[in-house]
Amino acid sequence: MAETGFSLRPAALDQDPPLLNFALPNKVVDLCRSMSLWPMTFGLACCAIEMMAVGMARFDVARYGAEVFRPSPRQSDLMIVAGTVSLKMAPALVRLYEQMPSPKWVIAMGNCAISGGPFAYEDQYAIVEGVDKLVPVDVFVPGCPPRPEGLLEGIFKIQEKVTGRRWWPLPQEAAA
C-alpha cells in the first residue's frame, strides 16, 4: 500500500455484559437471537445488490428470520459489510459498529471486505485491505460478489456460532 499519511483507528472491542447470566435462559435467548437476526443495511458497493437479492422473493432470507434489515445500528445485531471499505469510509464503519448494542456479529461479504479483493494491489492508496483490520469478523463469505446462497450460508454459520449447532440440512442431506 502506498504511503498516505492516514491513520486508522480499529473499533473498541468491549462488549456489554449480559443482563442475566444463567446457562439455561441464556441458551434460550441465544436461540431466539439466532433465529431473528436483524442485519444492518451496510451496503457499500456491488455486493450490496446481492445482499438485496437475498432479501427478495427467490432467496427469501425471511425463511431464516433475518429479513429485518435496519438502517440504524441501534436496532441491529448483525453487520453485513457488503463491499469495499475505503479509508474515507473506515471511521464511519468503526463508529457504526461501536453503536451497535451487544451481542453483535459481523459478516464480511465479498472479497473486498475480506482482503481488498480486486482493489488490493501494490501502490493502492484508498481502501482498507480487509475489514478485520477494523472490526472483529465472525464469518467471511468469499466471492466477487458471493452468490446469494453464499450469504445465506454465512448467516447459517452465524446461527451456528451463536447456538453451537447447525440448524439447516446441507444440500446433500436434503437431497438424500
Binding site: S86, M89, F119, Q124, Y125
Partner: peptide, 8 residues
C-alpha cells in the same frame, strides 16, 4: 466514500 482508484 467508495473511491476505488479505478483510474490508478
Amino acid at each position: 466514500y467508495i473511491h476505488r482508484m479505478q483510474e490508478k
